[in-house]
Computed example of a mutant assay.
Amino acid sequence: MKKIIIPMMLMISGSVFSQVSAGTTAENNNRWTFGGGIGLGFGSNSSFYLQASPRAGYRLTNDLEAGVMGSVSWQTSDFYKSTMFGVGPFANYYIARSFYVGASLQHYFINYQDKYYDYAVSKEETALYLGGGYMQKIGGNSYMQIGVMYNVLWKENESVFSSGLIPSVGFVVGL
């Protein structure tokens, strides 16, 4: 059950990126980007899902950005509850401000409690996401990103995630 619900909620949840530092733009040579994402989901059996993913990046060149991102998610239903924390580096390369390719290495700490069978599991998992997508400028130095990432370390029946494929929709400011 957990192998279906966790990735399904991750895929359903959209990410919204916003710049934290007010009044900074790429035009004034500020190379730092700050942002994050948030996800929210509801489902049957009193399912509830909440996720936050802060990130901080630095533009090494006008087309290459690297940084650190984290994630925390919490979900519960009538049958289970779980928390997941993740942290790791990321890098994105932007092509003509219309496309991007990226990589992200995330190490997750997962706590899962099955309410029906009354057992709990704590485990760790590392994911290496590779992928890319399309970018649409929405104003100033803000872009909407639509893409897909694949966890090349994913193994069926060994991962907490049901699939290695993760579609993504988000916004990024500060490029």
Rank of each mutant, 00 (worst) to 15 (best):
K2T: 05
K2Y: 08
I4A: 15
I5R: 08
I6V: 09
M8E: 07
M8N: 12
M9V: 00
M11H: 12
M11A: 13
I12L: 10
G14L: 10
G14F: 07
V16R: 10
V16Y: 08
F17I: 12
S18P: 09
T24Q: 04
T24K: 15
T25Q: 10
A26K: 15
W32Y: 12
F34R: 02
G35R: 05
G35V: 01
G35L: 04
G36R: 03
L40E: 00
G41S: 02
G41F: 02
G43I: 05
G43A: 11
G43P: 08
S44Q: 15
S46M: 11
S46N: 14
S47M: 14
Y49P: 02
L50I: 04
A52C: 14
S53Q: 05
S53P: 00
P54Q: 03
R55Y: 02
A56Y: 09
G57R: 04
R59A: 06
R59I: 06
L60W: 14
T61A: 09
T61V: 07
T61M: 06
N62C: 05
E65M: 07
A66I: 01
A66R: 08
A66Q: 11
A66V: 03
A66S: 13
A66N: 10
V68N: 09
M69Y: 02
G70R: 04
S71H: 03
V72Y: 11
V72L: 06
W74S: 07
T76E: 04
S77H: 03
S77L: 09
D78C: 12
D78W: 11
K81D: 06
S82C: 05
S82I: 03
T83I: 11
M84V: 01
M84A: 08
F85C: 00
F85Y: 13
F85N: 11
F85A: 07
G86V: 04
V87Q: 03
V87K: 02
G88M: 01
G88D: 08
P89Q: 06
I95V: 15
A96R: 15
A96I: 07
R97K: 15
Y100R: 14
G102D: 05
S104F: 04
Q106T: 09
Y108L: 06
F109T: 01
N111C: 04
Q113Y: 12
K115V: 11
Y116H: 10
Y116R: 14
D118M: 11
D118S: 13
D118L: 12
A120F: 05
V121S: 04
S122A: 15
E124S: 15
E124G: 15
E125R: 10
Y129K: 02
G132D: 07
Y134V: 03
K137W: 00
G140T: 12
G140K: 14
S142Q: 07
M144N: 08
M144D: 09
M144W: 03
Q145H: 15
I146R: 12
G147Q: 04
M149N: 10
N151K: 13
N151W: 08
L153F: 03
W154Q: 07
E156H: 08
E158A: 13
F161V: 05
S163G: 00
G164E: 02
L165V: 03
L165Y: 09
I166M: 15
P167A: 01
S168C: 14
V169W: 11
V169H: 07
